[in-house]
């Protein structure tokens, strides 16, 4: 057994020497590369950027702030059918792309910034589009348990410099998820949404609240 083992070692040694002697010469070198990374970004209301804006190397961060849009309907207007423009506590006017003033004074116009992008290498079939959607409950509710259907809130979309708003204007559905925009691969989108209470019916006095959650989903 020992002698066999020794013989094998000698054989392996001989093979190793032969390999070095027969090492083929190289006629070229290889550089491996990877595809660019996938990325998804969505900002609704206030956001966080550090080190500048996207166009000059800025880095986005998480921001958990939930902004509000609200309105107090004057008694004389209750249920008149005259839409009541909501104002917002969002202060964002600048686009995170390059800092340009894209929305107008949210305190007076009620415009809430909504923007983002979808990065993904390749352009073949499948995985081409991300979906921007919003999910709402059936109704806004008051402390007394009274309700206003969420479909009583609409928005007007715009953006400085945009002939046509990227995110279309619309109205919330009363409970469920609705698609706002199909986002093509490697594109940027942004709009300023100004919300209104449609004020089409008389409702009991109270403060009615509800949350709309925006989601950007990539395949």
């Amino acid at each position: 057994m020992k002698s066999l083992s020794f013989r094998m070692r000698r054989a392996l040694l001989g093979l190793a020497v032969a390999c070095v002697a027969w090492l083929p010469s190289a006629h070229g070198f290889t550089v491996g590369i990877t595809a660019g990374q996938r990325a998804l970004f969505l900002q609704v209301g206030v956001g966080t950027m550090s080190g500048g804006f996207f166009n000059n190397g800025g880095t986005p961060g998480d921001n958990s702030t939930v902004n509000t849009a609200s309105v107090t309907v004057p008694v004389a207007q209750l249920g008149s059918g005259a839409p009541q423009l909501m104002t917002t506590d969002s202060t964002v006017t600048a686009s995170p792309w390059e800092g340009a003033a894209f929305c107008n004074s949210p305190a007076t116009t009620g415009q809430v910034y909504v923007g983002g992008f979808f990065r993904r290498p390749g352009q073949g079939a499948g995985g081409n589009e991300a979906i921007l959607s919003v999910t709402t409950p059936a109704a806004l509710t008051s402390g007394n348990g009274d309700t206003i259907p969420f479909s009583r809130i609409a928005w007007t979309s715009s953006g400085n410099g945009d002939a046509t708003a990227t995110i279309p204007s619309g109205t919330f559905v009363s409970g469920g998820t609705q698609t706002l925009l199909t986002v093509s691969r490697n594109t940027w989108f942004e709009s300023c949404l100004a919300f209104s209470y449609l004020n089409t019916e008389i409702v009991p006095a109270g403060t009615f609240t509800g949350r709309a959650t925006f989601t950007l989903t990539a395949p």
Binding site: G28, G32, I33, G36, G122
Partner: peptide, 13 residues
Amino acid sequence: GRKVEHAQSLQFF
């Protein structure tokens, strides 16, 4: 980057 879908090896010589 839209057209570089996968990792690949570049052959220089």
